[in-house]
């Protein structure tokens, strides 16, 4: 894909705060229709990346194009780009309805009324509450409601699940999915909630040590990563001897009649077949597929001088 076709294209982005280089050459591309998750440890530079992308912070070098424009000119997209930040940016003295009316005034092509978006986010009963009277979760809902007044093409969300209760998280996840499927809106989400990202993202980028350590589609991440198996059988020693002979299989641990193995490209059924053929009775075989959490852990726990683990 050409950079010009991308919703967001970040090339060699470097950002320094005094002597500390936070971003050491970020490369990131968000494709049309993608829900792109950006994950990283606290202080890894997720928010800084988003702020640079949206023109809130200057950067030392690199190129950022968002819908083909530079960050300082995003306003010329006239509402096609929306940012929802960790701290909801709302006038605390206004009511929910007034905040949304104000946001609608600034929306060039509004497609929904304040009452409609209040209804969509369960804010109707708080319509006449001042923002300062709302909980953090409800403030975040109002902040998200901003995005729904118009028809954005690209929504950047920094920690969208912070402060939300379980129901609120489900609502936001459903909204992201609906907006993505119904309007084709692309998303860049940053969060520590890997499970939530895993449930909606099409792409994941892991930010570590100031660089994008891994960018992959979620499908590839799940399909190409190695698989953990837990096997309970009657002849554990014989099973270890058999499986160790295959270089695609690594024995992680072995205890009495239970062993944990890591495989690449060999599925559980094949392992079971080999053991049974060797006369070993398998009483339990459990596949522990490596998820985003495991991939993330592998990357952040890798020694600084070792090559980063790859997903494919």
């Amino acid at each position: 894909m050409k950079a010009t076709d991308a919703i967001l294209s970040v090339t060699s982005l470097r950002k320094r705060f005094a002597a500390v280089e936070v971003l050491k050459g970020i490369d990131l591309t968000v494709t049309p229709g993608a829900i792109h998750g950006l994950v990283g440890l606290n202080g890894s530079g997720k928010t800084t990346t988003m702020e640079c992308v949206l023109g809130m912070q200057s950067f030392q070098s690199g190129d950022v194009r968002i819908l083909g424009r530079q960050p300082a000119d995003i306003w010329q997209c006239h509402g096609a780009v929306v940012g929802i930040f960790d701290t909801p940016g709302l006038h605390s003295g206004l009511t929910v309805r007034q905040v949304l009316t104000h946001a609608r005034m600034l929306c060039p092509k509004p497609v929904r009324s304040p009452a409609e978006v209040e209804d969509m986010l369960g804010l109707s009963r708080y319509s006449h509450y001042r923002i300062r009277q709302l909980s953090l979760g409800n403030r975040r809902r109002v902040s998200i409601a901003h995005a729904l007044l118009g028809q954005p093409q690209f929504i950047v969300m920094d920690e969208p699940f912070n402060g939300l209760d379980a129901g609120g998280v489900d609502d936001v996840l459903a909204l992201i999915k609906d907006l993505n499927s119904q309007t084709g809106a692309s998303f860049l989400l940053s969060s520590h909630q890997l499970a939530y990202l895993e449930s909606i993202c099409t792409h994941i980028s892991i930010l570590h040590n100031g660089r994008i350590a891994l960018t992959e589609t979620l499908q590839n991440l799940a399909g190409t990563a190695s698989t953990q198996l837990r096997i309970v059988c009657d002849k554990a020693d014989a099973a270890v001897a058999l499986l160790q002979s295959d270089p695609a299989i690594r024995i992680s641990s072995h205890e009495q009649n239970q062993l944990n193995v890591q495989t690449v490209g060999i599925d559980a059924a094949e392992i079971n077949r080999r053991l049974v053929m060797a006369g070993i009775s398998v009483s339990e075989l459990q596949e522990l597929r490596r998820g985003l959490h495991q991939v993330f852990q592998d990357i952040v726990n890798a020694p600084a001088d070792s090559p980063l683990p790859e997903a494919s």
Binding site: G55, I74, W75, V81, F85, T87, P88, G89, L90, L106
Partner: peptide
């Protein structure tokens, strides 16, 4: 401080405006 300016700058107007 409140972050209100960010919404305006992203959606509608330049800093100088």
């Amino acid at each position: 401080d409140s972050g209100v300016l960010r919404h305006l700058l992203i959606r509608h107007a330049s800093r100088r405006t």
